[in-house]
Amino acid sequence: MDVLAGLIQTAFLAGGVLALAALGEVLAERVGVVNLGVEGLIALGAMTGIAVVSVAPVPWLGFSAALLVGLVAGMVFALATVVVRANQVLAGLALTYIGLGLAATLGKPFSGSPAAATFAKVDIPILSDLPFWGRALFSHNILVYIIFLALPVLVHYVMFYTRHGLNMRAVGENPAAADAAGISVMKMRFWYTSLGASLAAGAGGYLTLAFVPSWSEGVVSGRGWIAVALVIFAGFRPINVVLAALLFGFITALGFVGQARNWPVAASVLAMLPYLGTIALMILPVLAWQKMRRIMAAPEGLTQPYFRDDR
């Protein structure tokens, strides 16, 4: 029982990176921009977080710096894809390469050393004393509560229960109609793409300030790509995305437990599980249930640059 509680606790901790990055990607994809630069953004944020706390050992400062770096990188990406309307796949790959390369080059001095400051665990009074659930649910660092509770509920509410959210989704589904209705397609796409990128880099800050907590060149190891896949798997819905991230956190946690308890499986084989799991989850639901394709479909205008003339 204790093992299971620990597993769930680690699942939240590990899944937080994916959840935050994937929430950011939901914002971008819902307004019609696919950002394949998440992997690079996480790397940039992770390196930024470590670098900032090495100067000023305040975790919030490192995390905010990561968000800010992501916002700036996202604005560059949005400038290329939304304003210039360059190919989103190419620009996204470019962002991944730039982020990974830049983070590795600039992060060399911090490689391997632990973070100078990390987010401490916040035990919720009374609830955290509960026998099983206390450890599993109510004993986490503050970011976990934000990422798994506050943020998805907020995004869900704005996206599905406000006029602004309706406008957002209209821009992603049918930019021409949204334009005709007086919504600025470019403004909407620019800011939500930038905000999404900011959250992805924030996920990097979370990775090195709350989860690992140290920087090394390979620390991101595909989490950005898994996050992009989760968005598709979760049908572009914020709450589903966070639940899917939790599932993947659980798979990662299983790998850790396996290593710690000396299961007769090599560590590198256990480390393959999240990637194989992601591929399986991308393929199986579509095969199993044809209706899934329609229900979980991507926004109609995804990856389509919008030109007013083309209407």
């Binding site: 190419l90 990974l100 590795a104």
Partner: peptide, 25 residues
């Protein structure tokens, strides 16, 4: 000089970004 193959990856990304923009222009 402190550069690595990862630095090359960053330069590659830079070329790719400019190429994507150039394609549109």
């Amino acid at each position: 000089q402190g550069l690595t193959t990862q630095t090359v990856l960053a330069v590659t990304g830079l070329i790719l970004l400019y190429a994507a923009i150039g394609d549109e222009f």
